[in-house]
């Protein structure tokens, strides 16, 4: 059972192709991460899935409907560029977002008060959005996204602009919703969030899905990484180290050869390498990402990190 299925979505903006044949399957009740650098086509893909824009070609099925707007009352969406009416009170903003998705206004206000109190924003319920800090306004919008108790939550870059405490809170909220059976899709260019939260990910680069599957599966595409520091710098043991090994500050970094750790260790000891430190690491999602999306995409992501 899939909450969202996309088959071969294509989107052209004039002459440029923003999304080039994206196919996705998001299992119901899972946390699904959409990874990729900015400009890879994540937001455009999400907007097509939500029905804000129609694809140039391809089909989508959201909560069993071909027209996503028909499922709108069961979807919550936090856009990348946050937007609220500045003059509205916080509780009214939340209730308004609920009303857009079919929740009666009075019920929306009641739930808004409860949600705001839960998030220590009870004092701000009757203050206008204009007077709130950026982080508070983001929280208000996030509450507005879930006030109507949707079955599918779509969050576009939800972690950007949040401090560490609020990021942790958001992660907790996403987990809580998923435990309750809600499907959560979020996009990010910060791999750590996807690594901690997601069961499944899709890596998007240059408008295409470069990888689609479980996080472990992405990792298992890579061999473990060996980090080695030796006292000797020359000797016959060098033959045991693969030719494509990198030097990182006096360390050799390379993939574990096919034969496993034993032949490597034997060669190092017999060759008198003088092992100072040796670590065999399971590859992280970042390494997997580099391997899958390419070094350039990874570089692009790294540059955006300061955000």
């Amino acid at each position: 059972m899939y909450a969202v299925e996309a088959i071969d979505l294509v989107k052209d903006f004039g002459e440029t192709r923003a999304v080039d044949g994206v196919s996705l399957r998001v299992p119901a009740g899972s946390i699904f991460g959409l990874l990729g650098p900015n400009g890879a086509g994540k937001t455009t893909t999400l907007r097509m899935l939500l029905g804000i824009i129609d694809p140039s070609s391809g089909t989508r099925l959201v909560l069993g409907r071909e027209r996503p707007l028909e499922a709108a009352p069961e979807i919550g969406y936090l856009p990348e560029e946050r937007g609220l009416y500045p003059a509205m009170h916080a509780r009214d903003a939340i209730a308004f977002m609920g009303a857009l998705r079919g929740l009666p206004l009075a019920e929306g206000r009641r739930r808004a008060d409860a949600l705001l109190a839960e998030h220590n924003l009870g004092d701000w319920a009757r203050k206008s959005i204009r007077t709130l800090s950026k982080g508070m306004a983001q929280t208000v919008q996030l509450l507005g996204t879930i006030v109507h108790k949707p079955r599918l939550i779509v969050l576009d870059e939800p972690f950007s602009g949040l401090d560490a405490i609020n990021q942790a809170r958001l992660e907790e909220m996403i987990r809580r919703e998923a435990r309750a059976g809600v499907t959560v899709i979020f996009s990010t260019h910060v791999i750590a969030h996807a690594e901690r939260l997601c069961e499944e990910i899709a890596i998007i680069a240059k408008g295409k899905v470069a990888f689609d599957g479980g996080v472990d599966e992405a990792r298992s595409r890579l061999r473990p990484i060996v980090r080695l520091r030796t006292r000797a710098s020359e000797g016959p043991w060098l033959d045991a180290i693969p030719a494509n090994a990198r030097r990182e500050g006096g360390e050799f970094v390379f993939e574990l050869p096919e034969g496993g750790p034993e032949p490597l260790l034997k060669a190092l000891i017999d060759g008198g390498a003088g092992i100072e430190t040796l670590a065999i690491e399971r590859p992280g999602l970042h390494d997997a990402f580099v391997a899958i999306a390419g070094a350039k995409a990874a570089e692009a992501m790294a540059q955006e990190k300061p955000q």
Partner: peptide
Amino acid sequence: IEEKSNKVIEVIAAAIP
């Protein structure tokens, strides 16, 4: 103008025709 400048339009367009 209001919706377009403060991006509420995205929230609205995702929810209603």
